[in-house]
Write a protein that binds this DNA or RNA. Structure first.
Length: 268
DNA sequence: ACACTAACCTGCAAGC
DNA sequence: TGCTTGCAGGTTAGTG
């Protein structure tokens, strides 16, 4: 999936293509996503107009003239806006029809999710931490939050109760940029290092959004063109390759059931 | 509080 | 040419 830059890129594509359009039909081809798509979503969405789009963490919110459509892309989800006559693809599970186009949610692994919300108080949204690109995400926030945290810093910054949208790729990349060993306990990190870390998280995410999201395997933008940030990755996916900074070997370890890539020489 | 497991799935690459 | 294994962007829920 899609990490936050990919979600933001997808959302921005939707703004251009579907703002102020009215949903004329809803089709559920396979309801078995991360959570089952309920059938009542059809009557909830039919005839609604999409007034605008927003994003909270990795959830894309379609702001309707009544209520919200909330979509999470999971690991392999994509949204495509196409001509109605474009042939269906394998794993097109959910379709919105408009007057002149269709929006298809395609998700091979089906870890994505789709909900209709009457309002924004939803259990999946209620406990989310700050947005990484907001001003409220700063060194004091991370420093204070981490004082009683003995977990490793990578798990800490990937915890959506702390800060949303920092996935596995960008957690690895921003820790590399900051020179922090991902195994370091969160409560052992100084305020100065958290200042550098928050700035690097913002930089890495902003740069990736500008590049249109990272392309890995199966991510594509709404218009079908790939993002092109993958060539910018310093450590993610580069096990045994040479570090661009010190020329030493990038290592892969496992933390909290996820791969972590880092440079042992640059990250202390 | 934290780590670990399992759960939800398909696709792809590597190894035999 | 299979077949099997392990791994992949996420996140929740349950256990110890």
């Amino acid at each position: 999936m899609p990490e936050l830059p990919e979600v933001e890129t997808t959302k921005n594509g939707l703004v251009k293509l579907l703002s102020n359009k009215r949903i004329t039909r809803v089709e559920i081809r396979n309801p078995n996503l991360r959570w089952r798509v309920v059938d009542s979503i059809k009557s909830d969405l039919n005839n609604r107009t999409i007034q605008s789009f927003s994003r909270r963490g990795k959830y894309i919110l379609f702001n309707l003239d009544k209520g919200y459509l909330m979509i999470h892309l999971g690991m392999s989800g994509k949204i495509n806006v196409l001509d109605i006559n474009e042939p269906l693809k394998k794993h097109d599970h959910f379709i919105l029809y408009f007057k002149n186009e269709v929006m298809r949610f395609n998700d091979p692994r089906r870890f994505g999710s789709i909900f209709y919300l009457k309002d924004l108080s939803h259990k999946l949204l209620n406990n989310l931490g700050v947005e990484p690109l907001d001003e409220s995400f700063h060194e004091n926030y991370l420093f204070e939050y981490s004082r009683n945290k003995t977990q490793n810093v990578k798990a800490f910054i990937m915890d959506s109760k702390v800060v949303v949208g920092v996935g596995n790729i960008y957690a690895c990349e921003s820790l590399f940029k900051t020179g922090i060993n991902p195994r370091t306990k969160a409560n052992k990190i100084s305020k100065q290092r958290y200042l550098n870390l928050t700035e690097n998280i913002k930089k890495v995410l902003t740069k990736a959004i500008k590049a249109g999201g990272t392309t890995l395997q199966d991510f594509a933008r709404v218009d079908g063109k790939p993002g092109y940030f993958s060539q910018e990755l310093s450590v993610y996916g580069r096990e045994d390759k040479n570090c661009f900074s010190c020329n030493g070997k990038i290592r892969r370890i496992f933390q909290n059931q996820r791969s972590t890539f880092y440079c042992p020489k640059c990250q202390k």
